[in-house]
Design a protein around this nucleic acid. Structure first.
Lengths: 211, 211
DNA sequence: CCTGGTACCTACTCGCGAGTAAGACTACTG
DNA sequence: CAGTAGTCTTACTCGCGAGTAGGTACCAGG
């Protein structure tokens, strides 16, 4: 029993990381309600009371997961966008960063999008907050660069639609993982920038320079 | 106690309708897991064993709700679209029908979109099925009318993005109910048909005739 | 060797909710 | 008015999972 024996007596910070990773994994697979604290503790290689001692109740744990993953994702997107560029280039960078993140963090995405959005508890707040930041980002991009969306409401709803299209396409992508991230991102870029009207006529959007 | 006394001894078909309505209501408010059979039976004005006698287990009941609401919605959309028209007109009719349905059936929409999509059980099948039909509808519209989406995969993913944008915008609309359905539909139509590129230049899409 | 503190565990309590047993009440049929 | 088919209820069982009580092992410093 010595071989690969349980690593014992780790410091608190390390355990917390392990627990969070296990929690994201389990929540993403089972969803909030179906996930049990017993299973999370098992995956984390730890006993249940430790879980409660370190991360609090189930709801607190879930909210902490949401916040951590949401922050990671928003940072990934923000780091990919340069604010002084042309609107289409900014949008393109954002889409690439977004799909890149989702591709490399499937579990995080499941937790964020599928699970958090349906639980009505304190999670919705975290999630709505992040989603709101994303929508504002896009809405700002729109209003800043055009005279078309006259009202604030209009820009916001268009941004909501775009964000939703991105989320939905990311979900679709989970079922078609053979497609590379760049291709999926480009497709959405064409849809929202050119529109079907142009695509029908064979007009497509190209990134400004081969980077 | 005679006043407004409980209506007693109704025939089975009527009770089943009442139960289904109550179930859709409760499921849409609480979600599948948090909804209890006790509450559904209470809302339906009936005792729990009746529920089990008529509609079976909780899972069966939920699946039945999904199927009923999905059918209603697809019929609403199909009845609004005429297959021999121009692609943009078809899309426009579909969008109007969709938002019209959601606007008048908030609870149905909640059950269909928010609840069913996250439960991994047999419901996903029902839901994925309906969603698939919607996506196929749009994908057919695309391939039929253009040379742009070369691959089947491409058309399908674009359709998924469009459907997702619609779903997301419908969710956004739930939080901004003061907007009329037609305005929201027109906004999405502009986004996906014209694209931001055109909208930035002030080019908008107009319905072909004041109907 | 004791004293305290931190990591860690086994083994519970306890409420909630799915599902059921067993029968009662009503209404129609002959 | 007996018989029977269908409606409807009260009052349970029972498992699952959140949260906890009450310890044990291990490592400081004195």
């Amino acid at each position: 029993m010595r071989t690969e024996g349980r690593a014992k007596r780790l410091p608190r910070a390390v355990r917390e990381r392990q627990i969070m990773d296990a929690a994201v994994d389990v929540f993403s697979r089972l969803g909030f309600h179906s996930a049990s604290m017993d299973e999370i503790s098992e995956v984390a290689g730890i006993s249940k009371p430790m879980l409660y001692a370190y991360l609090g109740s189930k709801e607190e744990l879930f909210a902490t997961c949401i916040r951590r993953e949401a922050t990671r994702m928003m940072e990934a997107i923000a780091s990919g966008v340069e604010p002084d560029q042309e609107p289409d280039v900014q949008l393109w960078s954002g889409l690439r960063a977004f799909f890149g993140f989702v591709g490399e963090n499937r579990a995080s995405w499941q937790v964020l999008h599928r699970q958090a959005s349906t639980q009505g508890g304190p999670f919705a707040i975290e999630l709505t907050d992040m989603r709101g930041r994303a929508v504002s980002l896009v809405a700002a991009l729109l209003t800043q660069s055009t005279k078309a969306p006259a009202t604030k409401l209009e820009a916001e709803s268009l941004a909501a639609a775009l964000v939703g299209a991105g989320e939905s396409l990311a979900d679709w992508w989970l079922d078609h993982p053979e497609e590379p991230a760049g291709v999926v991102a480009a497709r959405l870029m064409n849809l929202v920038w050119m529109g079907f009207g142009d695509l029908v006529d064979g007009n497509v959007w190209h990134p400004p320079s081969r980077r």
